[in-house]
């Protein structure tokens, strides 16, 4: 028996919006730790890892580990039927082939439930080792989103370089080229407005902007994004989900052929 009650239902709505364009079908794993997901996009260039810890739910009952395969577009459609202030409860029976999403409005005078068929998906769970990154940059998520959007009007790929000067985003296209540098800036009114650069070693990597733009769909989940870069590893863009966990996007670089 699985029963997860999330008071801030809007979080789940936002999580689905952040993932549904990148990943079509995915297995949600439910255990005592929490509600999680790991999935790659169809071309295996990007990977998303989600964790909503059990402590973040008002009620969390998961008698045994359950894997539930779902089409994210369909889940997103169902969650669009929930109001932003609704409480969302996810229910499933052990060994069952359906999941139920229940929505309660704040006045508790409207209760909806939607039952959805689960899918049997081949899960290809990848082991992601802990790594020391050459550079870790925390910046306002809205700023990162703006940069990715602006640069994609000029080019298809971006070179992200971190030096002592700051983090530089460069692109080139038919009309010319563009560089945006964000310097470390900690003299801000609110900590979430800061740009903080931790650099062990200078790093420069090339990425497809299309994927980075897709990751920025998570912007509404967190005011800051943490970008981790290492020359031998995929980029990680992490959006923390307040009091609950995170959504992390991994993106494999483009390398010299």
């Amino acid at each position: 028996m699985l029963e997860l009650r999330l008071v801030q239902g809007s979080l789940l709505k936002k999580v689905l919006e952040a993932m549904k364009d990148l990943v079509t079908d995915a297995n949600f794993d439910c255990s005592a730790t929490g509600f999680s997901l790991q999935a790659m996009d169809s071309s295996h260039v990007a990977l998303v890892a989600l964790l909503l810890r059990s402590e973040g739910f008002e009620h969390y009952r998961c008698d045994r580990n359950i894997t539930m395969g779902m089409n994210l577009n369909n889940v997103s459609k169902l969650l669009k039927c929930a109001g932003n202030d609704d409480i969302i409860t996810i229910k499933a029976d052990d060994g069952g082939d359906t999941v139920t999403f229940m929505f309660e409005n704040p006045k508790q005078d409207k209760i909806s439930d939607f039952e959805m068929k689960l899918m049997d998906l081949d899960s290809e769970h990848l082991g992601i080792p802990d790594a020391e990154y050459h550079a870790i940059v925390r910046m306002p998520s809205l700023e990162f989103s703006r940069i990715c959007k602006d640069l994609s009007s000029i080019g298809d790929t971006v070179v992200i370089s971190v030096t002592k000067e700051g983090i530089k985003f460069s692109t080139r296209g038919d009309i010319g080229n563009a560089n945006i540098v964000c310097r470390q800036n900690t003299t801000v009114d609110k900590p979430e407005e800061a740009t903080v650069i931790q650099m062990n070693e200078a790093v420069s990597l090339t990425f497809a902007l299309r994927y980075l733009n897709s990751f920025t769909k998570a912007t509404s989940l967190s005011e800051t994004v943490t970008i981790s870069l290492s020359s031998e590893l995929p980029l990680v863009a992490e959006y923390k989900i307040a009091d609950m966990g995170y959504i992390k996007f991994y993106l494999a670089p483009k390398i010299e052929d």
């Binding site: 790659m40 990848l126 082991g127 497809a208 494999a252 483009k254």
Partner: peptide, 14 residues
């Protein structure tokens, strides 16, 4: 020309 790498060349199943 740059080649797009895949996630699976960095992380392996397990």
């Amino acid at each position: 020309v740059r080649k797009q790498c895949q996630i699976t060349s960095f992380f392996s199943p397990g």
